[in-house]
Design a protein around this nucleic acid. Structure first.
Length: 540
RNA sequence: GCGCCCGUAGCUCAGCGGAUCAGAGUAUUGGCCUCCGAAGCCAAGGGUCGUGGGUUCGAAUCCCGCCGGGCGCGCCA
């Protein structure tokens, strides 16, 4: 089946090139007018061209219209276009085009919205990357929800995606963990004499301490504690429905000589210098506000070095694009890591890697902020959230906001099993369609979509048509929250339609066509929810 | 003090490569089930888009100042 929008674009690009021979096809851009009176698509080419052509947008639009109106209308997919406002070229889909959308969704099924990438890339998304020093906190939850959704979106655009978890299994934090567990095993409690400096105080330390077989062997304690907490994090991630392809150990960067190699390359690049007994890198040459220490005067490396070495492995492993999902508190590392990669001079692109930084999550319950949990002490855990509101609500809520906005997680709202809760609202739309099938006796097999002629059903079909391009934009912006908003809107349109029109009418042909539309809605909801890692229940 | 991010309806937030951008949900108020799940729908009220300038034919959107909030600013990781 041909793609109406691609056809429209081709016609307009051709006309634009006649009008402005130098202009690229990129000026043919479409907007989705909010006001339905302005049609389904609005081409802004005339506005964009006004400056270079030095003519009024309306005049250019009129020329475009004259040149293309006939062909556009003849396609059968669009009404005759019209010029409006400052010079917008407005297009409305015909009933035939909308009916075709329903057919397309049903034909493609679980693949509706997927794209066969024109240029498939090997892409890595690194997220969570929590050190094994305690249970995952809500910030990790936000990263897990965000990162997994971004990875899924990239896969849907046809890319080969690796989900990766990087963790520090050897540094000072781990040492502190081992000392804390050891102290606790010897009966020393936080605040007592002999309690390690800045030791971990959560109750989980006590649990580990109770089970550690040989408290006097610090190495053994360290290994035991790390294994214990890694296992616990895995259980939580599994409960959250997130699965990683690769767990990358920081220690391997040392044992495999990658850290040493990175340092040697940096020195060879001529971008380093010695000062005060330490080795520095001129990161200021790459936009950093101060130079950074590579090797401390005591001979050990700063964390910056393994960080750079780690990103070199990403590049060497063939990841053309890397997305790191982290909290905004890691902001300063961006410039530093990129500068380090540039200084190596191994051909890594300037903006490598990409970052998605998210702000804090504030958990509210009973009108008050929750700041502590029994198990972890000073913070709320992912496990707490899942226990309180269920996995679906946690995942949907955590991706339903722009990453860089602070997020207030309203536990009471997420617990509600009614219309106030957006997760249930969307899932309910899905279950409602399933319930229609149950009453009808299954999914309709034979249907004639030309019976879909009402304004409401055609507009609902139009909403389905937006899905693929919405996913494309969400992926480009690395912004899964737009998908959460879309699903809410689609559910709203469906509920509205359902209340206005009876689906299971006596007229068999009409009934079959309407059920086919509902089926397409269900499919689209299910596809969108699965991208967010949220279930699409048939009954609730 | 410096850097980055944020400030949109009572509340939680979309919109920010300029034009067709004042939006959604929720809360409040009033309607809709003898009929497909009312876990739903329809409608009303509610904002000089933090503030003061600037650029433009046009600014919530771009630029600058200020106010308010968040996060960074180690030879810590």
């Amino acid at each position: 089946m041909d793609d109406p929008k691609a056809l429209l674009r081709a016609i307009l690009v051709e006309a634009v090139q006649r009008l402005a021979p130098g202009a690229g096809g990129a000026v043919v851009a479409f907007e989705r007018p909010r006001n339905p009176e302005h049609g389904d698509l609005s081409c802004t080419a005339a506005l964009t061209l006004a400056r270079t052509l030095k003519r009024s947008p309306r005049e250019i639009a009129a020329r475009l219209l004259e040149d293309t109106a006939e062909r556009v209308a003849q396609s059968g997919y669009f009404e005759r276009p019209a010029i409006a406002g400052a010079g917008f070229y407005n297009i409305r889909y015909t009933a035939k085009a909308r009916q075709a959308v329903v057919a397309r969704v049903l034909e493609q099924g679980a693949a509706y919205g997927r794209l066969a990438a024109r240029e498939p890339q090997k892409i890595q998304v690194e997220f969570v990357s929590a050190n094994p020093t305690g249970p995952l906190h809500v910030g990790h939850g936000r990263q897990a929800a965000l990162g997994d959704a971004i990875a899924a979106l990239l896969e849907w655009q046809g890319h080969a995606v690796t989900r990766e978890f990087y963790y520090n299994d050897a540094g000072a934090q781990i040492e502190k963990l081992a000392l804390s567990v050891q102290a606790r095993a010897r009966g020393i409690r936080p605040g007592d004499a002999g309690w390690p400096e800045e030791g971990y105080q959560g109750e989980y330390i006590e649990e580990i301490a109770r089970e550690v077989p040989n408290p006097d062997d610090l190495d053994a304690v360290r290994r035991f504690a790390v294994t214990y907490l890694r296992r616990e994090q895995d259980v939580d991630l599994q409960a959250f429905g997130v699965k990683f392809d690769v767990y990358y150990l920081e220690s391997s960067l040392y044992t495999e000589g990658k850290v040493e190699e990175a340092v040697q390359r940096l020195v060879a690049s001529g971008k380093t210098y010695e000062k005060d007994g330490a080795l520095w890198l001129r990161t200021t040459d790459y936009g950093d506000d101060k130079d950074r220490v590579v090797r401390k005067s005591d001979g050990t490396y700063t964390y910056f070095v393994p960080d750079v070495a780690y990103h070199v492995t990403k590049w060497r492993r063939g990841f053309a694009k890397v997305v790191n999902v982290q909290g905004t508190d890691h902001h300063s590392t961006i410039t530093r890591v990129r500068a380090g990669l540039q200084a190596l001079g191994v051909g890594i692109p300037r903006g490598y890697p990409d970052y998605v930084l998210h702000s804090l999550v504030k958990v509210m319950r009973g009108g008050e902020e929750v700041k502590i949990s029994k198990r972890a002490g000073s913070y709320v855990t992912v496990r707490d959230l899942i226990d309180w509101v269920g996995r679906d609500a946690v995942r949907f809520f955590l991706v339903s906001r722009k990453a860089d906005s602070e997020f207030v997680f309203d536990v009471d709202l997420a617990r509600k099993k009614n219309d106030e809760n957006p997760v249930y609202y969307v899932q309910y739309a899905h279950a409602r369609v399933c319930s229609l099938f149950a009453q009808h006796g299954g999914n309709p097999k034979d249907f004639d979509l030309t019976h879909l002629s009402g304004e409401r059903e055609l507009s609902l079909a139009g909403k389905l048509e937006e899905f693929p391009e919405l996913l494309e934009a969400a992926t480009r912006e690395l912004a899964p929250h737009t998908l959460a908003f879309y699903l809410r809107e689609l559910a709203a349109d469906f509920h509205s339609y359902y209340n206005a029109e009876r689906i299971l009418v006596d007229d068999e042909a009409l009934r079959a066509a309407r059920l086919a539309l509902c089926s397409a809605v269900r499919q689209t909801l299910a596809n969108g929810l699965s991208l967010l890692g949220v279930s699409a229940p048939e009954k609730m």
